[in-house]
Design a protein around this nucleic acid. Sequence first.
DNA 1: GTTATTATGTAATTTAATTACATCAAATTG
DNA 2: CAATTTGATGTAATTAAATTACATAATAAC
Lengths: 285, 285
Amino acid sequence: MNVLEKIVSSVTSFSKSERKVADVILANPQITIHSSIAALAKMADVSEPTVNRFCRRLDTKGFPDFKLHLAQSLANGTPYVNRHVEEEDGPEAYTAKIFESTMAALDTARQRVDINTINRAVDVLTQAKKISFFGLGASASVAHDAQNKFFRFNVPVVCFDDIVMQRMSAINSSDGDVVVCISHTGRTKNLCDIAAIARENDATVIGITAYDSPLARECTLVLSLDVPEDTDMYMPMASRVAQLVLIDILATGFTLRRGSKFRENLKKVKDSLRGSRFEKKDFAN
Amino acid sequence: MNVLEKIVSSVTSFSKSERKVADVILANPQITIHSSIAALAKMADVSEPTVNRFCRRLDTKGFPDFKLHLAQSLANGTPYVNRHVEEEDGPEAYTAKIFESTMAALDTARQRVDINTINRAVDVLTQAKKISFFGLGASASVAHDAQNKFFRFNVPVVCFDDIVMQRMSAINSSDGDVVVCISHTGRTKNLCDIAAIARENDATVIGITAYDSPLARECTLVLSLDVPEDTDMYMPMASRVAQLVLIDILATGFTLRRGSKFRENLKKVKDSLRGSRFEKKDFAN
DNA sequence: GTTATTATGTAATTTAATTACATCAAATTG
DNA sequence: CAATTTGATGTAATTAAATTACATAATAAC
């Protein structure tokens, strides 16, 4: 266990002043390693020996040694601890926490995702006559993003965030069509209906959703992420980022399957933007 | 480039004594980080100031700072490197690479983001009469996502991905309105226009875009991320994830600024979904 | 309410690192 | 080849940083 994790895990056993030190260090680890013990003590509003004692408590020889350990922890790609945002957090604290818990979520997702299913999903997608992305609420923007990626592949892609359009589209689907339903919880009734309708019409249904959810049961293929979500904020955050990365992975798999000459296609799409953009050189100095 | 690599690469430019120091450090890096400057000087059979000068030559502040850098170098290969996807990668390989480079991008973004600007952006947003999110292409889905977050706060929020609607909306804006323009490159002409128009009409314009881009120049406040993007795929991936996390941060800052009773509001919004969802207990086993 | 224990801070001490300066070695020039 | 300059290196003094020892305050136990 590295020092940062150690601090987080033993935060309860700290005294009041040590807690202050821990908070400051966790909020600004980068700054800490470039600070003297005096500077850190001042930031935490404690005395220098308190900082020193804090270091010893974490089994380091002293402050300089502690900084060494801390530097190594930070270099190790940082421990992605899922720390919850709290009422009294300042901008530094909540910014760091959100970045970290998002990274922690991606780390979990990476470990849990089933490569086999991804591969099968890519299979299905590359052979699709038409691809539809459906999501509601926060998942709607993930669906949009997916459309933005897949339309480049010269495959008919649709994306609806309107439940009526989704229904109509699902009813019209047929063999060879792929419908991707996106929902973190997998418990949105309307979307479950869509999945069921699409399947009745012989479409292949891929669910980006929770394993063992009502939606999952309606799907041909389930890409489950099972990312822990900080529900204190009542907003989907990390889960949606994980979904997007999954979309990236599917899109990447798609292009790789199609081979290198297909990549030129993508370049053409990107190049088509040229006229609508300011050239980079105009602003070089 | 980390310090160890730097030592190796600049070994030719060292003086005789500096060379001795380099040799000792490269031979015993682990020992070095736990040695004093005196001990190291003795090992290398040079004077202490020589060691100090050696450290400075490597662009560190001094010996302790050098040890810090060395410690980070030794803390073995940052696990989250931005590895590019290659033609012959199988599903495992590209899945891992995309997860990793996304995490690496977030890590960079976290280090580069300016907390002060975030704080000011939150300030501006909490005081807004109306908030508009504008993006085009891949950034459009980020704008949608932002709308999905901010509409919960009981503030008028609009989001357009249609350039005509954006224009009309921007012209209608006035003092107290906040317009958030999202663009990775910051070089999309249409969006720069929108920002300019909004500013002419006294709106505050926040840009989530590249620092020192044409768009950035039109903005009141610039939230720059500067995330490295794998352009081989010709699709925005990591940059867009970083933008989303930034939106999460702004939304979180917003709710924290509004205090705890405001959080109950969010809960209400979430609870409103109850009827449209299958209850969890129905499926617990 | 008193005592013991732990936590924290102040001031002194020690240790480490840096600076300023002196000396030496090598290179360059007349 | 001697003289001068430049750069490299070391010595000693100085400054900065960290640690220790001790005192005081807070807390818990009796």
